[in-house]
């Protein structure tokens, strides 16, 4: 049984829902030991009742002005559950993970999950 944990969240960016919407959240299940530094890894995202379909996953280091060097692949593994393969966070420091959800209105909204990756 996967123990899930993680949480969620959203910072109230425009991509993250307006005043009339509750903040978006997703649950992320990382592999043992958490997201590894500079190694390919897979993880599971649960949309937790967010309306929409996960259409893109990406990541950046905003303060470094660059993204990731891989193209992660999304696979739907359950109703609201997706497995992401091919993520690689190649530097320690402040990352942002991006989850783009396409709603039934065909609009894409972005959930931003900050992640501080330590030296390992």
């Amino acid at each position: 049984m996967p123990l899930r944990s993680l949480l969620l969240l959203c910072f109230l960016t425009p991509a993250c829902g307006g005043p009339d919407r509750s903040p978006l959240s997703v649950t992320i299940e990382y592999p043992d030991g958490g997201p590894p530094l500079n190694k390919h890894f897979s993880f599971v995202v649960d949309l937790q009742g967010q309306a929409g379909e996960l259409v893109d996953v990406d990541a950046d280091m905003p303060s470094h002005g660059h993204g990731i060097n891989t193209d992660p692949v999304i696979e739907r593994i359950g109703n609201e559950r997706y497995r992401i393969d091919g993520m690689l966070l190649h530097m320690p420091g402040a990352w942002e993970l991006y989850f783009d959800l396409k709603g039934s209105d065909n609009k894409t909204r972005r959930i931003v999950v900050p992640l501080e990756l330590a030296h390992q």
Binding site: L7, E29, Y30, G34, L97, L115, E116, A118
Partner: peptide, 11 residues
């Protein structure tokens, strides 16, 4: 099955 729980935000 071995997935552990990790706080992903601001770990």
């Amino acid at each position: 099955g071995r997935i552990a729980s990790i706080i992903g935000i601001s770990a």
